[in-house]
Amino acid sequence: MHIKTIAPATKAPRPRPLSPNIQIYRPQLTSVLSIANRITGVLLSVGAVGLVIWLSAAAAGPGSYATVQQAIGSWIGRFLLFGCTFAFFLHLCGGIRHLVWDTVHGFELRSIYISGWSVVATSLALTVAAWVVGLCTGGWL
């Protein structure tokens, strides 16, 4: 059977525009904590390289260890270490929240918001606590 083809259009049809998504959608605690969990995960992977450098320096000898210790003790070093500590605790608390969700608990919107803000508050408190303990016991680095 021969099927007549429709005459080709004179110009290609214009593709339909895609309505904006991330460009206009409001950040909410749900999406912000989700992306924060990802970003902190990436930061921790980078921070792990720093940990390896620190351990290698310690294994290499007192000279190189002192150099790395000095870098960590500098203003920028402490700032980065503080960031890594916060990233660690936020990722840890967020991970625990996800583990609870995997058991199908805490899905009511109220629970989602309470656990979300708890993650933020707990990770901030743990970061401060870790630094207070670290600075006190470590003799101010």
Partner: peptide, 14 residues
């Protein structure tokens, strides 16, 4: 909105 350019990931026709 998220702090990204308004043209982020947007094709010309959109």
């Amino acid at each position: 909105r998220f702090p990204i350019p308004r043209t982020f990931n947007v094709t010309t026709e959109s």
